[in-house]
Design a protein around this nucleic acid. Sequence first.
DNA 1: CTGGGGAAGGGGCCC
DNA 2: GGGGCCCCTTCCCCA
Length: 251
Amino acid sequence: MPRSFLVKKYFSNKKPNYSELESQTDQRYAVVPLHDSVVPMLVWGSSALPLAFTPAPPSPPSPPGPLDLSSPSSSSSSSSGEEDDCRTSDPPSPDPDSDRSQCSQCGKPCGSPAGLSRHQLTHCTPGPQTTGAASTAARAAFHCKHCPKEYTSLGALKMHIRSHTLPCVCGTCGKAFSRPWLLRGHIRTHTGERPFSCPHCNRAFADRSNLRAHLQTHSEVKKYQCGTCSRTFSRMSLLHKHTLSGCCPSA
DNA sequence: CTGGGGAAGGGGCCC
DNA sequence: GGGGCCCCTTCCCCA
């Protein structure tokens, strides 16, 4: 599932204020779809943000086989790209003071060497463009044995593999999930628990993201705007549907 | 057809 | 390094 059209911009590094979602005055996000025919703009507050997106060129395929986590000696090699890889949610940083702990792959300032080290675990492997022992070690790839994905760290790979092994099983219906919190969210569908309430109406939701989407329905200016007719939508999927329905045949 | 709700997936970051 | 929570998205279904 491609997520590379999302480019997150960090203007603050913590805790969202959900009341902001109704009266957006900051522009924290940029939405950049890959769909050729769609050039949506994010309307986050008063102005729209038309954005360009340049997909990274595909990396050459790599020959090494998948990593079998059941084998303790697995540690891997090589590298390659994959359609969803090598992206980052963070824009390059303009902060010169963060050079010492700035990610060499995405430019993100990480605050400290430790932060940089941790951040780098999140990068999937780029192409085989580097040489030298240090670079080779830094870009070692860990391949998923279940799919073509590969990661630069065992930790990242393990996290990914959970999406294949689905270790969290619902005791009520037996449905399995990759993460404990996904299971908890699912369990709410059995219990009916809805801890996220809308401040504007009596609705409550089991999922915070669904509340967030709901809050858009209370907003006059929706988050996603059609680049051609300027109509706004509460969800990207609605904008996409709108575009596919023929509003913007050439856009 | 459109808009909204429900459910779920998955990467990133913090503790 | 792992757990928990963040964020975002998509898909499906229904009014």
